[in-house]
Nucleic acid binder design. Structure first.
Lengths: 206, 206
DNA sequence: CGGGTGACATGACAAATGTCAGAGGGGCCA
DNA sequence: TGGCCCCTCTGACATTTGTCATGTCACCCG
Protein backbone atom coordinates (compact mmCIF):
# COMPACT_ATOMS: atom_id res chain seq x y z
CA UNK A 1 0.00 0.00 0.00
CA UNK A 2 2.04 2.88 -1.29
CA UNK A 3 0.04 5.90 -2.44
CA UNK A 4 -3.24 5.75 -0.54
CA UNK A 5 -4.92 9.11 -0.39
CA UNK A 6 -4.68 10.73 3.05
CA UNK A 7 -7.34 10.33 5.72
CA UNK A 8 -9.58 13.39 5.74
CA UNK A 9 -10.28 14.68 9.27
CA UNK A 10 -12.84 16.90 10.92
CA UNK A 11 -11.67 18.44 14.19
CA UNK A 12 -14.19 19.77 16.71
CA UNK A 13 -13.24 21.34 20.03
CA UNK A 14 -14.40 24.58 21.55
CA UNK A 15 -10.93 25.45 22.79
CA UNK A 16 -9.25 27.23 19.95
CA UNK A 17 -5.85 26.67 21.46
CA UNK A 18 -6.23 22.92 21.55
CA UNK A 19 -7.97 22.62 18.23
CA UNK A 20 -5.39 24.68 16.41
CA UNK A 21 -2.50 22.91 18.05
CA UNK A 22 -4.02 19.55 17.30
CA UNK A 23 -4.62 20.46 13.69
CA UNK A 24 -1.01 21.48 13.34
CA UNK A 25 0.33 18.33 14.94
CA UNK A 26 -1.88 15.94 13.05
CA UNK A 27 -1.08 17.65 9.78
CA UNK A 28 2.53 16.70 10.32
CA UNK A 29 1.52 13.09 9.72
CA UNK A 30 1.57 12.77 5.96
CA UNK A 31 -1.27 10.28 5.82
CA UNK A 32 -3.60 12.59 7.72
CA UNK A 33 -5.12 15.86 6.59
CA UNK A 34 -7.43 18.18 8.48
CA UNK A 35 -10.18 19.33 6.13
CA UNK A 36 -12.45 21.13 8.58
CA UNK A 37 -12.55 22.56 12.10
CA UNK A 38 -15.47 23.43 14.34
CA UNK A 39 -15.87 25.05 17.75
CA UNK A 40 -19.35 23.84 18.67
CA UNK A 41 -21.68 20.90 18.20
CA UNK A 42 -23.91 22.42 15.53
CA UNK A 43 -20.92 23.80 13.70
CA UNK A 44 -19.32 20.37 13.71
CA UNK A 45 -22.43 18.92 12.10
CA UNK A 46 -22.52 21.60 9.45
CA UNK A 47 -18.84 21.11 8.69
CA UNK A 48 -19.30 17.37 8.45
CA UNK A 49 -22.11 17.80 5.95
CA UNK A 50 -20.07 20.18 3.89
CA UNK A 51 -16.83 18.21 3.82
CA UNK A 52 -17.83 14.57 4.42
CA UNK A 53 -14.65 13.70 6.32
CA UNK A 54 -13.41 10.12 6.79
CA UNK A 55 -12.98 10.53 10.52
CA UNK A 56 -14.52 13.08 12.88
CA UNK A 57 -12.47 13.81 16.00
CA UNK A 58 -14.91 15.30 18.51
CA UNK A 59 -14.43 16.76 21.94
CA UNK A 60 -16.96 15.40 24.41
CA UNK A 61 -17.88 18.74 25.92
CA UNK A 62 -18.80 21.42 23.47
CA UNK A 63 -21.35 24.22 23.51
CA UNK A 64 -24.57 23.53 21.66
CA UNK A 65 -24.46 19.77 21.47
CA UNK A 66 -21.97 17.42 23.06
CA UNK A 67 -19.82 14.95 21.17
CA UNK A 68 -22.21 12.06 21.65
CA UNK A 69 -25.18 13.98 20.28
CA UNK A 70 -23.15 15.03 17.27
CA UNK A 71 -22.08 11.42 16.81
CA UNK A 72 -25.69 10.27 16.81
CA UNK A 73 -26.66 12.74 14.10
CA UNK A 74 -23.55 11.91 12.11
CA UNK A 75 -24.35 8.23 12.29
CA UNK A 76 -27.64 8.88 10.53
CA UNK A 77 -26.47 11.42 7.99
CA UNK A 78 -22.99 10.23 7.12
CA UNK A 79 -22.71 6.52 7.88
CA UNK A 80 -19.32 6.38 6.22
CA UNK A 81 -17.82 8.86 8.64
CA UNK A 82 -16.17 7.22 11.64
CA UNK A 83 -16.35 9.09 14.91
CA UNK A 84 -13.59 9.34 17.49
CA UNK A 85 -14.32 11.03 20.79
CA UNK A 86 -11.59 12.80 22.73
CA UNK A 87 -12.21 13.95 26.27
CA UNK A 88 -10.57 15.52 29.28
CA UNK A 89 -12.72 13.97 31.97
CA UNK A 90 -13.55 10.42 31.07
CA UNK A 91 -16.57 9.40 33.07
CA UNK A 92 -17.71 5.80 32.68
CA UNK A 93 -21.27 6.61 31.67
CA UNK A 94 -20.10 8.80 28.83
CA UNK A 95 -18.20 5.94 27.32
CA UNK A 96 -21.26 3.75 27.42
CA UNK A 97 -23.43 6.42 25.85
CA UNK A 98 -20.82 7.05 23.22
CA UNK A 99 -20.53 3.41 22.20
CA UNK A 100 -24.31 3.17 22.04
CA UNK A 101 -24.25 6.13 19.65
CA UNK A 102 -21.99 4.23 17.30
CA UNK A 103 -18.76 5.96 18.20
CA UNK A 104 -15.72 3.97 17.05
CA UNK A 105 -13.09 5.35 19.38
CA UNK A 106 -12.93 6.95 22.81
CA UNK A 107 -9.70 8.33 24.25
CA UNK A 108 -8.67 10.73 27.00
CA UNK A 109 -6.67 13.84 26.21
CA UNK A 110 -3.77 12.44 28.16
CA UNK A 111 -2.58 10.42 25.17
CA UNK A 112 0.22 11.80 23.03
CA UNK A 113 -0.37 13.16 19.55
CA UNK A 114 1.62 10.25 18.13
CA UNK A 115 -0.70 7.83 19.82
CA UNK A 116 -3.74 9.77 18.68
CA UNK A 117 -2.57 9.61 15.09
CA UNK A 118 -2.25 5.84 15.37
CA UNK A 119 -5.71 5.59 16.87
CA UNK A 120 -7.16 7.70 14.09
CA UNK A 121 -5.69 5.24 11.59
CA UNK A 122 -7.10 2.31 13.56
CA UNK A 123 -10.53 3.85 13.58
CA UNK A 124 -10.33 4.75 9.93
CA UNK A 125 -9.63 1.12 9.05
CA UNK A 126 -12.96 0.26 10.59
CA UNK A 127 -11.66 -1.02 13.92
CA UNK A 128 -12.67 0.22 17.30
CA UNK A 129 -10.42 1.68 19.95
CA UNK A 130 -11.27 2.42 23.56
CA UNK A 131 -8.69 3.61 26.04
CA UNK A 132 -7.96 0.61 28.30
CA UNK A 133 -8.10 2.61 31.48
CA UNK A 134 -11.45 4.18 30.67
CA UNK A 135 -12.76 0.78 29.64
CA UNK A 136 -11.68 -0.69 32.96
CA UNK A 137 -13.41 2.13 34.82
CA UNK A 138 -16.57 1.60 32.83
CA UNK A 139 -16.59 -2.12 33.55
CA UNK A 140 -15.79 -1.58 37.21
CA UNK A 141 -18.55 0.94 37.68
CA UNK A 142 -21.01 -1.33 35.91
CA UNK A 143 -24.51 -0.51 34.86
CA UNK A 144 -26.64 2.04 36.57
CA UNK A 145 -28.72 0.38 39.27
CA UNK A 146 -31.27 3.17 38.98
CA UNK A 147 -34.63 2.80 37.31
CA UNK A 148 -35.61 5.40 34.73
CA UNK A 149 -37.76 7.29 37.22
CA UNK A 150 -35.15 7.25 39.90
CA UNK A 151 -32.60 8.68 37.50
CA UNK A 152 -35.07 11.30 36.32
CA UNK A 153 -35.92 12.44 39.80
CA UNK A 154 -32.29 12.41 40.84
CA UNK A 155 -31.46 14.60 37.92
CA UNK A 156 -34.12 17.11 38.88
CA UNK A 157 -32.69 17.10 42.38
CA UNK A 158 -29.25 17.89 41.03
CA UNK A 159 -29.36 21.63 41.53
CA UNK A 160 -30.50 21.42 45.11
CA UNK A 161 -34.16 22.05 44.46
CA UNK A 162 -36.54 21.13 47.29
CA UNK A 163 -38.82 18.12 46.94
CA UNK A 164 -41.85 20.28 46.25
CA UNK A 165 -40.24 21.75 43.16
CA UNK A 166 -39.04 18.39 41.92
CA UNK A 167 -42.50 16.96 42.37
CA UNK A 168 -44.01 19.77 40.37
CA UNK A 169 -41.48 19.55 37.57
CA UNK A 170 -41.82 15.79 37.36
CA UNK A 171 -45.59 15.90 37.77
CA UNK A 172 -45.35 13.49 40.68
CA UNK A 173 -46.57 13.66 44.23
CA UNK A 174 -44.08 14.76 46.86
CA UNK A 175 -44.32 11.42 48.58
CA UNK A 176 -43.43 9.58 45.40
CA UNK A 177 -40.49 11.84 44.78
CA UNK A 178 -39.22 11.14 48.24
CA UNK A 179 -39.63 7.44 47.69
CA UNK A 180 -37.58 7.56 44.50
CA UNK A 181 -34.94 9.69 46.06
CA UNK A 182 -34.79 7.41 49.02
CA UNK A 183 -34.35 4.29 46.93
CA UNK A 184 -31.80 5.97 44.71
CA UNK A 185 -29.82 7.06 47.75
CA UNK A 186 -29.81 3.60 49.24
CA UNK A 187 -28.93 1.95 45.93
CA UNK A 188 -25.95 4.25 45.59
CA UNK A 189 -24.98 3.81 49.21
CA UNK A 190 -24.97 7.57 49.72
CA UNK A 191 -25.53 9.61 52.85
CA UNK A 192 -28.28 11.72 51.35
CA UNK A 193 -29.60 12.72 47.99
CA UNK A 194 -26.99 15.37 47.38
CA UNK A 195 -24.17 12.94 47.86
CA UNK A 196 -26.14 10.55 45.65
CA UNK A 197 -26.27 13.16 42.91
CA UNK A 198 -22.53 13.57 43.16
CA UNK A 199 -21.92 9.82 42.96
CA UNK A 200 -24.28 9.32 40.06
CA UNK A 201 -22.62 12.18 38.21
CA UNK A 202 -19.17 10.76 38.81
CA UNK A 203 -20.21 7.47 37.36
CA UNK A 204 -22.01 9.07 34.47
CA UNK A 205 -25.38 7.68 35.45
CA UNK A 206 -27.23 10.93 35.15
CA UNK B 1 16.62 44.93 19.61
CA UNK B 2 17.76 42.42 17.05
CA UNK B 3 19.30 39.30 18.53
CA UNK B 4 17.64 38.91 21.91
CA UNK B 5 17.90 35.39 23.21
CA UNK B 6 14.61 33.51 23.07
CA UNK B 7 12.12 33.42 25.92
CA UNK B 8 12.52 30.19 27.87
CA UNK B 9 9.18 28.52 28.65
CA UNK B 10 7.90 25.93 31.10
CA UNK B 11 4.69 24.21 30.01
CA UNK B 12 2.50 22.44 32.56
CA UNK B 13 -0.73 20.65 31.66
CA UNK B 14 -1.87 17.19 32.60
CA UNK B 15 -3.27 16.53 29.16
CA UNK B 16 -0.40 15.18 27.16
CA UNK B 17 -2.19 15.88 23.91
CA UNK B 18 -2.60 19.54 24.67
CA UNK B 19 0.78 20.00 26.19
CA UNK B 20 2.60 18.36 23.32
CA UNK B 21 0.61 20.21 20.73
CA UNK B 22 1.16 23.47 22.50
CA UNK B 23 4.87 22.87 22.78
CA UNK B 24 5.05 22.19 19.08
CA UNK B 25 3.09 25.28 18.16
CA UNK B 26 4.92 27.65 20.46
CA UNK B 27 8.26 26.33 19.28
CA UNK B 28 7.39 27.52 15.81
CA UNK B 29 7.75 31.08 17.09
CA UNK B 30 11.45 31.75 16.84
CA UNK B 31 11.59 33.98 19.89
CA UNK B 32 10.05 31.31 22.12
CA UNK B 33 11.56 28.05 23.25
CA UNK B 34 10.05 25.37 25.46
CA UNK B 35 12.70 24.19 27.92
CA UNK B 36 10.56 21.99 30.16
CA UNK B 37 7.20 20.25 30.37
CA UNK B 38 5.25 18.91 33.33
CA UNK B 39 2.04 16.95 33.79
CA UNK B 40 1.27 17.78 37.42
CA UNK B 41 1.62 20.54 39.98
CA UNK B 42 4.59 19.09 41.87
CA UNK B 43 6.32 18.14 38.66
CA UNK B 44 5.89 21.68 37.39
CA UNK B 45 7.60 22.99 40.52
CA UNK B 46 10.47 20.56 40.18
CA UNK B 47 10.92 21.44 36.53
CA UNK B 48 10.86 25.13 37.31
CA UNK B 49 13.60 24.70 39.91
CA UNK B 50 15.70 22.70 37.53
CA UNK B 51 15.36 24.95 34.50
CA UNK B 52 14.52 28.39 35.85
CA UNK B 53 12.33 29.39 32.90
CA UNK B 54 11.47 32.99 32.03
CA UNK B 55 7.76 32.28 31.81
CA UNK B 56 5.74 29.40 33.25
CA UNK B 57 2.57 28.57 31.35
CA UNK B 58 0.37 26.64 33.78
CA UNK B 59 -2.94 24.90 33.40
CA UNK B 60 -5.33 25.83 36.19
CA UNK B 61 -6.48 22.31 36.88
CA UNK B 62 -3.74 19.77 37.38
CA UNK B 63 -3.37 16.79 39.67
CA UNK B 64 -1.33 17.37 42.81
CA UNK B 65 -1.50 21.13 43.04
CA UNK B 66 -3.46 23.53 40.88
CA UNK B 67 -1.94 26.31 38.86
CA UNK B 68 -2.50 28.94 41.52
CA UNK B 69 -0.76 26.91 44.21
CA UNK B 70 2.18 26.31 41.93
CA UNK B 71 2.25 30.01 41.16
CA UNK B 72 2.39 30.85 44.84
CA UNK B 73 5.37 28.59 45.40
CA UNK B 74 7.06 29.84 42.28
CA UNK B 75 6.64 33.42 43.42
CA UNK B 76 8.68 32.64 46.51
CA UNK B 77 11.35 30.46 44.98
CA UNK B 78 11.85 32.01 41.56
CA UNK B 79 10.77 35.63 41.71
CA UNK B 80 12.15 36.23 38.22
CA UNK B 81 9.84 33.68 36.66
CA UNK B 82 6.58 35.18 35.36
CA UNK B 83 3.51 33.00 35.58
CA UNK B 84 0.78 32.76 32.96
CA UNK B 85 -2.31 30.70 33.74
CA UNK B 86 -4.28 29.02 30.99
CA UNK B 87 -7.64 27.49 31.75
CA UNK B 88 -10.64 25.80 30.17
CA UNK B 89 -13.29 26.90 32.61
CA UNK B 90 -12.68 30.46 33.69
CA UNK B 91 -14.53 31.06 36.92
CA UNK B 92 -14.36 34.57 38.34
CA UNK B 93 -12.98 33.58 41.73
CA UNK B 94 -10.08 31.74 40.21
CA UNK B 95 -8.95 34.86 38.47
CA UNK B 96 -9.00 36.77 41.72
CA UNK B 97 -7.07 34.08 43.54
CA UNK B 98 -4.58 33.90 40.70
CA UNK B 99 -3.90 37.62 40.70
CA UNK B 100 -3.50 37.54 44.46
CA UNK B 101 -0.87 34.84 43.99
CA UNK B 102 1.14 37.12 41.77
CA UNK B 103 0.16 35.60 38.45
CA UNK B 104 0.91 37.94 35.54
CA UNK B 105 -1.49 36.57 32.97
CA UNK B 106 -4.78 34.70 32.87
CA UNK B 107 -6.31 33.46 29.62
CA UNK B 108 -8.93 30.91 28.56
CA UNK B 109 -8.01 28.08 26.23
CA UNK B 110 -10.29 29.55 23.61
CA UNK B 111 -7.55 31.92 22.42
CA UNK B 112 -5.51 30.99 19.38
CA UNK B 113 -1.89 29.92 19.61
CA UNK B 114 -0.88 33.12 17.80
CA UNK B 115 -2.60 35.15 20.43
CA UNK B 116 -1.09 33.07 23.22
CA UNK B 117 2.39 33.66 21.84
CA UNK B 118 1.76 37.41 21.90
CA UNK B 119 0.49 37.22 25.43
CA UNK B 120 3.54 35.26 26.51
CA UNK B 121 5.70 38.06 25.13
CA UNK B 122 3.59 40.65 26.92
CA UNK B 123 3.97 38.83 30.20
CA UNK B 124 7.66 38.28 29.68
CA UNK B 125 8.16 42.01 29.27
CA UNK B 126 6.77 42.46 32.75
CA UNK B 127 3.28 43.53 31.79
CA UNK B 128 0.08 41.90 32.88
CA UNK B 129 -2.58 40.40 30.70
CA UNK B 130 -6.04 39.26 31.68
CA UNK B 131 -8.60 38.08 29.17
CA UNK B 132 -11.14 40.90 28.87
CA UNK B 133 -14.15 38.62 29.04
CA UNK B 134 -12.94 36.87 32.16
CA UNK B 135 -12.13 40.22 33.70
CA UNK B 136 -15.65 41.45 32.96
CA UNK B 137 -17.12 38.35 34.55
CA UNK B 138 -14.98 38.82 37.61
CA UNK B 139 -16.03 42.44 38.00
CA UNK B 140 -19.68 41.61 37.42
CA UNK B 141 -19.70 38.86 39.98
CA UNK B 142 -18.06 41.15 42.51
CA UNK B 143 -16.56 40.24 45.83
CA UNK B 144 -17.73 37.38 47.91
CA UNK B 145 -20.30 38.52 50.48
CA UNK B 146 -19.34 35.58 52.67
CA UNK B 147 -17.24 35.87 55.77
CA UNK B 148 -14.28 33.53 56.12
CA UNK B 149 -16.18 31.13 58.34
CA UNK B 150 -19.22 31.09 56.16
CA UNK B 151 -17.11 30.19 53.17
CA UNK B 152 -15.26 27.53 55.14
CA UNK B 153 -18.43 25.88 56.35
CA UNK B 154 -20.01 26.10 52.92
CA UNK B 155 -17.01 24.38 51.48
CA UNK B 156 -17.27 21.55 53.95
CA UNK B 157 -20.92 21.22 53.03
CA UNK B 158 -20.02 20.93 49.37
CA UNK B 159 -20.10 17.17 49.12
CA UNK B 160 -23.46 16.80 50.78
CA UNK B 161 -22.17 15.96 54.23
CA UNK B 162 -24.67 16.26 57.08
CA UNK B 163 -24.34 19.07 59.60
CA UNK B 164 -22.94 16.78 62.27
CA UNK B 165 -19.97 15.90 60.09
CA UNK B 166 -19.35 19.48 59.08
CA UNK B 167 -19.42 20.54 62.71
CA UNK B 168 -16.90 17.90 63.62
CA UNK B 169 -14.56 18.71 60.79
CA UNK B 170 -14.74 22.42 61.46
CA UNK B 171 -14.53 21.97 65.24
CA UNK B 172 -17.69 24.01 65.67
CA UNK B 173 -20.98 23.26 67.36
CA UNK B 174 -23.81 22.08 65.16
CA UNK B 175 -25.86 25.13 65.98
CA UNK B 176 -23.08 27.41 64.83
CA UNK B 177 -22.68 25.48 61.63
CA UNK B 178 -26.36 25.83 60.94
CA UNK B 179 -26.22 29.54 61.64
CA UNK B 180 -23.36 30.01 59.19
CA UNK B 181 -25.05 27.91 56.56
CA UNK B 182 -28.25 29.81 57.08
CA UNK B 183 -26.61 33.19 56.68
CA UNK B 184 -24.62 32.02 53.69
CA UNK B 185 -27.77 30.73 52.05
CA UNK B 186 -29.62 33.97 52.60
CA UNK B 187 -26.67 36.10 51.46
CA UNK B 188 -26.51 34.13 48.24
CA UNK B 189 -30.26 34.21 47.79
CA UNK B 190 -30.35 30.43 47.48
CA UNK B 191 -33.14 27.99 48.28
CA UNK B 192 -31.01 25.84 50.53
CA UNK B 193 -27.40 25.15 51.26
CA UNK B 194 -26.90 22.86 48.29
CA UNK B 195 -28.06 25.45 45.84
CA UNK B 196 -25.86 27.89 47.75
CA UNK B 197 -22.86 25.65 47.22
CA UNK B 198 -23.60 25.57 43.52
CA UNK B 199 -23.91 29.34 43.31
CA UNK B 200 -20.76 29.97 45.28
CA UNK B 201 -18.88 27.51 43.11
CA UNK B 202 -20.10 29.15 39.94
CA UNK B 203 -18.87 32.48 41.14
CA UNK B 204 -15.62 31.06 42.40
CA UNK B 205 -16.26 32.02 45.99
CA UNK B 206 -15.36 28.67 47.41
C1' DC C 1 -54.41 -16.65 33.57
C1' DG C 2 -51.33 -15.71 37.57
C1' DG C 3 -47.26 -13.75 39.33
C1' DG C 4 -43.67 -10.59 39.27
C1' DT C 5 -42.09 -5.91 38.63
C1' DG C 6 -42.16 -1.07 38.31
C1' DA C 7 -44.83 3.34 38.49
C1' DC C 8 -47.42 5.83 41.56
C1' DA C 9 -49.70 7.01 45.61
C1' DT C 10 -50.87 7.83 50.98
C1' DG C 11 -49.98 8.42 55.74
C1' DA C 12 -47.15 8.46 59.65
C1' DC C 13 -42.97 8.92 62.15
C1' DA C 14 -38.09 10.05 63.14
C1' DA C 15 -34.28 12.69 61.91
C1' DA C 16 -32.07 16.50 59.72
C1' DT C 17 -32.32 21.17 58.42
C1' DG C 18 -33.62 26.10 58.35
C1' DT C 19 -34.82 30.05 61.09
C1' DC C 20 -34.96 33.17 64.94
C1' DA C 21 -33.85 35.50 69.20
C1' DG C 22 -30.43 36.32 72.22
C1' DA C 23 -25.87 36.61 74.38
C1' DG C 24 -20.76 36.80 75.42
C1' DG C 25 -16.12 37.89 73.72
C1' DG C 26 -12.57 39.87 70.71
C1' DG C 27 -10.68 43.05 67.49
C1' DC C 28 -10.58 47.30 64.92
C1' DC C 29 -11.14 52.13 64.38
C1' DA C 30 -12.82 56.83 65.16
C1' DT D 1 -13.77 54.52 75.24
C1' DG D 2 -17.67 53.26 72.67
C1' DG D 3 -19.54 51.36 68.59
C1' DC D 4 -19.49 47.97 65.13
C1' DC D 5 -18.66 43.69 63.11
C1' DC D 6 -17.39 39.04 63.25
C1' DC D 7 -17.02 34.59 65.76
C1' DT D 8 -19.07 31.53 68.73
C1' DC D 9 -22.50 29.43 71.23
C1' DT D 10 -27.36 27.99 73.10
C1' DG D 11 -32.16 26.81 72.89
C1' DA D 12 -36.48 26.56 70.71
C1' DC D 13 -39.35 26.16 66.88
C1' DA D 14 -41.22 25.24 62.09
C1' DT D 15 -40.16 23.01 58.01
C1' DT D 16 -38.04 19.75 55.14
C1' DT D 17 -35.99 15.39 54.76
C1' DG D 18 -35.55 10.30 54.93
C1' DT D 19 -37.73 5.94 55.92
C1' DC D 20 -41.24 2.52 56.22
C1' DA D 21 -45.51 0.04 55.68
C1' DT D 22 -48.99 -0.50 52.61
C1' DG D 23 -51.99 -0.26 48.62
C1' DT D 24 -53.60 0.31 43.64
C1' DC D 25 -52.84 -0.08 38.78
C1' DA D 26 -50.74 -1.42 34.48
C1' DC D 27 -47.70 -4.25 31.97
C1' DC D 28 -44.97 -8.12 30.54
C1' DC D 29 -43.82 -12.93 30.54
C1' DG D 30 -44.23 -17.88 31.20
Amino acid sequence: MTSTRPVRLLLADDEHLIRGALAALLSLEDDLTVVAEAASGPEALAMARAHAPDVAVLDLQMPGADGVKVATSLRAELPGCRVLIVTSHGRPGHLKRALAAGVRGFVPKTVSAQRLAEIIRTVHEGNRYVDPELAADAIASGDSPLTAREAEVLELAADGAPVAEIAERAALSQGTVRNYLSSAVSKLGAENRHAAVRLARERGWV
